[in-house]
Design a protein around this nucleic acid. Structure first.
Lengths: 179, 179
DNA sequence: TATTGTTATACTCTATAACTATA
DNA sequence: TATAGTTATAGAGTATAACAATA
């Protein structure tokens, strides 16, 4: 199972996995066991109780939503994270940014190539080390990042509404403990 | 960014992403903003506050742990989920099992081929429809599933300890709201 | 010697089109 | 005409080895 999908039909991959749609309530107990059973629905109780599986499905759902929103900016989640970290840490070298994001150095090259091609980021020569590149955002990159941040904030607000009062902060705190 | 990794060095991909290691406490507020800052650590505050990013990292960490445990059984998370769903729903056809797991029908074929090759699952002829296959576990498949379940239960217990009193149930309930 | 960025490469996961045999 | 399983294939994401330039 994977996270990033192709750029075609993002929604289809999780279609068979979604069932009941819940709105904001108070978070109390495990509701995984009871499924909105259809006529000949399968028994998925064993899976729904598993933290790892719930994490995977939730992550897919959130990313799917993210990808759909960011399609207008032509940004993937990975590209957004790169712009965000460069923007908050200008002048750092590729290896540092890549490591912070858990991206292999070789794979980071083509990502940067693309961002540079689109005029969003730049590889400046380092003043102290002629091997390394100091990464910065261009004006266009900063502007796009600002728009992306605003869209991301909106998603965060909608997620917070789904999660109920205090739910978002609670979720993030719990997730932090798993890392 | 992706979820499933290659079968070689699973740990390396998230190496650059992990920082502070937290033990069981009570889950209260968002602690994402403060990072265990090293000498010249990067500012990742923007990312750590994002639900989607926290979800991705937590899911990678949990899967990494899962993969390491299940290496002794030579089972991937996907294979485990397939055995589990077939075990709980014997006699269903491929399309049903695949859809329940969010797996594309074409991609499910080779997964079943492998499980059948290892003598864990079987494609029986359907009594009512000569096009479809009724999926069942073999005795060996049921036995392996039992061992896998026990290992998975142990992981769940350890996760519950990391998450603190009521934390696991709370987490699953919150994740359900995102799907 | 070690590190930085890079190229080449391979493997996994995911997705679609199209075929066959049945219904 | 539609469905079940399958084949072939293509695209992302991710991983490693090895190279040149530099430290």
């Amino acid at each position: 199972m994977g996270v990033r999908k192709s750029n075609r039909d993002v929604a289809s991959s999780t279609e068979g996995m979604r069932r009941g749609r819940s709105t904001a309530r108070s978070a109390t107990v495990d509701e995984a066991e009871e499924a909105t059973a259809g006529p000949d629905a399968l028994d998925l109780s064993g899976l729904n109780a598993v933290v790892g599986y719930a994490l995977r499905r939730a992550q897919l759902a959130v990313f799917e939503d993210f990808i759909a929103r960011f399609a207008t900016l032509d940004l993937t989640p990975a590209q957004y994270s790169v712009l965000l970290v460069i923007g908050n840490n200008p002048g750092r070298k590729q290896a540092e940014i890549a490591a912070a994001l858990g991206i292999q150095r070789p794979n980071f090259v083509s990502m940067l190539d693309e961002l540079e091609r689109r005029g969003l980021a730049e590889r400046l020569p380092s003043a102290t080390d002629r091997r390394s590149h100091a990464l910065v955002l261009t004006k266009a990159g900063s502007a796009l990042l600002a728009r992306a941040r605003a869209m991301q904030d909106e998603q965060e607000r909608e997620l917070a509404q789904k999660l109920g009062p205090g739910g978002r902060e609670m979720l993030v705190a719990l997730l932090q403990r798993l890392m």
